[in-house]
Amino acid sequence: MIIRIEPESEIPIYIQLTNQIIIGIAKGDLQPGDSLPSVRSFAADLGVNMHTVNKSYHELEKRGIIEIIPKSGAVIRKTLHIDRDTYNRLFEMFQPLIAEALVLGMTKEELVDLVEGIMKKMST
């Protein structure tokens, strides 16, 4: 799987990495049980600081997407169903985005289309 980052973007590199790994899992490019490269080799391949990759891995671990196992490294978790806390966290994250969309004049149908469009992108 290929990860692309834009070092000059306003979005910090660790967030770009986190987002791309999540998209990769959603698309099926990365499967539960797959391990991510070691922090050192990932940082070396990209030519970025190891802290950047470390921060991204810890973020993914905090969100329950990967598990950091001593010696084996970062492994993608098998998650069956969303729990209450995660639901609440996502709810909080969606809220301002959906509010912004409504304020800017999106209709309910357009919003549903947008969600379906993104879902479709993930399934291909």
Partner: peptide
């Protein structure tokens, strides 16, 4: 031009 860095996770 926009600068883009790239990593192949399966390269290792």
């Amino acid at each position: 031009l926009k600068q883009v860095g790239v990593v192949d996770l399966s390269a290792r």
